[in-house]
Simulated scan of single mutants.
Amino acid sequence: MNDNRAFIDSLGEKIRRVIDDNRRLREEVARLAEERDGLVLRNRETEERARSLERRVKTLETAGAFAGNRADNRAARLRVNRLLREIDSCIALMNK
């Protein structure tokens, strides 16, 4: 009878540990999910800022090329021509 009681007590203790571990792990999962969501948001904001800065750099390069020397003027003309081709292709797609 004592052996059965010891076995039941041991089993009860193991069950309590499993339940405690489960609760702790659920809390950790929730915390990590919040952290992940925050990092995803931060990553999106950083990527958008990088895209914005890249657009600004291209604009400044183009503006600077018009005010600069001949080599810069050539680069600016090439950029403007590329932008015009993109506009033309957009217009062609809209007309389809």
Rank of each mutant, 00 (worst) to 15 (best):
E27N: 10
D37I: 02
L93W: 09
S52L: 12
A71M: 13
E54W: 05
L60P: 00
L84K: 15
L39I: 03
A63C: 09
R51H: 05
G38D: 02
G64H: 03
R5V: 11
R77G: 01
K14H: 10
E28M: 02
S10L: 14
V18D: 08
A30T: 05
E47Y: 02
K58Y: 02
D37F: 04
R74K: 12
G64M: 07
L41D: 13
D9Y: 15
E35I: 05
L60I: 08
R70A: 11
E45R: 14
L83E: 14
V80W: 07
R24K: 06
E34I: 02
D37M: 04
K96S: 10
A6Y: 10
A63P: 06
R85I: 11
A92N: 06
R23A: 09
E54K: 10
D88Q: 15
L11D: 07
S89Q: 13
V18G: 05
R26N: 00
R79H: 09
R56S: 01
M94R: 14
F66A: 03
R85M: 08
A67G: 06
V80E: 03
E28R: 00
A92D: 10
R23L: 03
V29K: 00
R51L: 12
E61Q: 06
A6W: 10
A63F: 10
R17V: 12
E45N: 13
R77K: 10
D9K: 15
I87K: 11
R5W: 11
R77S: 06
I8F: 15
K58A: 08
N2Y: 10
N2G: 11
L84A: 10
R56W: 05
A50G: 01
G64R: 04
A67F: 10
K96G: 11
R55H: 05
N69M: 09
F66L: 12
T59F: 09
A65N: 04
E54P: 01
L11G: 07
R31M: 00
F66W: 13
R70H: 11
G38N: 07
F7G: 05
L78C: 07
R77C: 08
R49F: 12
E27P: 00
L25A: 02
L39Y: 02
I15W: 02
N43S: 09
V80H: 05
E48W: 11
F66N: 07
R17Y: 02
G12Y: 12
A71S: 13
T59C: 05
